[in-house]
Every structure is written in structure tokens, then in C-alpha cells.
């Protein structure tokens, strides 16, 4: 028996919106640690890793480890039927091939349940080592989303370059070129507005903007985004999920042939 209950159900709706465009089908892993997912996009250059720790839920019961294969577009369709203020419960009984999503309105006057078929998914699980990154940028997530959106009207790729001057995002295309420089800015009224750059070594990497734009679907989850980079390693773009975990996106850099 697996059951989780999340009073702030909108978080789960936002999580699904953050991953459904990148990944079609994925295995959710349920264990005593929490509710997690690791999935690659169909071209195998980007990976999303989600962790929602069991302590973050109002109720969490997982009698034995369980893998639930779900079509994310279908799961998102079901979660869209939950109101933003609804409490969401996810339930799966042992030995069944369905999962139930239950939505309760805050005043308990409307209770809906939606049953979805599970699927068998063959997926590769990658071991991601904890790495020391040469440069870590923390900045407002809305600012990062804006930069990715603006640069994608200029070119297909973004060059992210971290130096002691700050972080530069550059794109080039048929109509011209663009450079956006963000400097460290820790002296802000609200900590969520800060831009903090920790640099051990200058790093310059190139990435496909299509993926970066897809990652920014997680912007409603967190005020800040963390971008971790090292030479010739996949970038990690991380959004925290309200004290209960994270969504991390990994994207392989484009390498000069």
C-alpha cells in the first residue's frame, strides 16, 4: 500500500507542468525516503530528477518500495482537474495496475477521485555523482526564464560564461547577436531578488536553448534557480520545491568537434 497526502496540492500540479513537456513516460519511485523520479528526454541529452521527501507530506505511507510507470501527459491531465487550493492524495494498492488521485476542496464539500492506468516502462537509471562545480550561480528564477526566452528569439544556443565580472549569457543568429550580463547583487531588500555567483574557475559552456526554455517551466515552483557548471560536465539547473525537495535538470553541453 502506498499513499501520500499533500495539503498544498498546487505544488504537485506545478511539478507536473515542469516535466511533462520534457518527458513522455516516466517511472515514479516510491520509498520511505519519498516520491522521486529520474527520466531522460527522448533524445537522451537532458535528464530530470525530482525528489519530494516523505517528511514534506502531511501523510506518507509506503509499505514497500514501489515503481509506478506513468504517462506524464495523462497524469498532468488528471492533476489539472484538481483546484489550486485542493488537497491531493495519491493512492496505489499492491498488485494493482492503477493509481488513484483524490482531490478534496479546502472546505471538504467536494471530493473527486480519478483513476489512472499504470504502464510498464523500461528506463535507464543513471548514477549521478555529487560533483564539485567550478561555478554556481543563484539568481531569480523569473530573470533566468526571461533571459532564456529573450535569447531564443536570437539564436538556438546560449553560451553561458562565468568570470569574476559576472555571468554572461550570449546568443547569435541570422538577425544578429545578444549578450546579457548579470553581476553579483547580494545587497537587495529581499533575498529572493539576489544574484550570487560562486566561482572557483572561470567556465564557458554552450547549451541548446530549447532545453533551457523547457527547464524554465519550473519557474512557478521557486523564486530562485541555481545553475551549477563545470567544464565539460552537464549543467545542473535546480529549482527547490517548497522545503520538501527539488527538481534538477541536467543538460549535456554542446562540444566543439
Amino acid at each position: 500500500m502506498f499513499e501520500l497526502r499533500l495539503v498544498q496540492g498546487s505544488l504537485l500540479k506545478k511539478v507536473l507542468e515542469s516535466i511533462k513537456d520534457l518527458v513522455n513516460d516516466a517511472n515514479f519511485d516510491c520509498s520511505s525516503t519519498g516520491f522521486s523520479l529520474q527520466a531522460m528526454d527522448s533524445s537522451h541529452v537532458a535528464l530530470v530528477a525530482l525528489l519530494l521527501r516523505s517528511e514534506g507530506f502531511e501523510h506518507y505511507r509506503c509499505d514497500r518500495n514501489l515503481t509506478m510507470g506513468m504517462n506524464l501527459a495523462n497524469m498532468a491531465k488528471m492533476l489539472k482537474c484538481a483546484g489550486n487550493d485542493d488537497i491531493i492524495t495519491i493512492k496505489a494498492d499492491d498488485g494493482t495496475d492503477t493509481v488513484t488521485f483524490m482531490f478534496e476542496s479546502p472546505s471538504q464539500d467536494k471530493i473527486s477521485d480519478f483513476e489512472m492506468k499504470l504502464m510498464d516502462i523500461d528506463s535507464e537509471h543513471l548514477g549521478i555523482p555529487e560533483a564539485e562545480y567550478e561555478a554556481i550561480i543563484r539568481m531569480p528564477s523569473a530573470e533566468f526564464a526571461r533571459i532564456c526566452r529573450d535569447l531564443s528569439s536570437i539564436g538556438d544556443t546560449v553560451v553561458i560564461s562565468v568570470t569574476k565580472e559576472g555571468v554572461r549569457f550570449s546568443a547569435r543568429g541570422d538577425i544578429g547577436a545578444a549578450n546579457i550580463v548579470c553581476r553579483q547583487n547580494a545587497t537587495v531588500d529581499k533575498p529572493e531578488d539576489a544574484t550570487i555567483i560562486e566561482m572557483q574557475e572561470p567556465v564557458t559552456l554552450t547549451f541548446a536553448l530549447r532545453y533551457m526554455n523547457s527547464f524554465t517551466k519550473a519557474t512557478p515552483l521557486a523564486e530562485q534557480v541555481t545553475i551549477s557548471m563545470s567544464s565539460d560536465l552537464p549543467v545542473v539547473v535546480e529549482y527547490k520545491v517548497a522545503g520538501m525537495g527539488y527538481i534538477r535538470y541536467y543538460l549535456a553541453p554542446k562540444i566543439e568537434e
Partner: peptide, 14 residues
């Protein structure tokens, strides 16, 4: 020309 390598070249499969 820049190319993109799959993630499994960076992270081993478990």
C-alpha cells in the same frame, strides 16, 4: 561545428 553527446557518456548507468 558543435555536437551534443548523450548524458550516459557523463553518468554511468546503474
Amino acid at each position: 561545428k558543435r555536437t551534443q553527446f548523450p548524458l550516459r557518456l557523463y553518468f554511468a548507468m546503474t
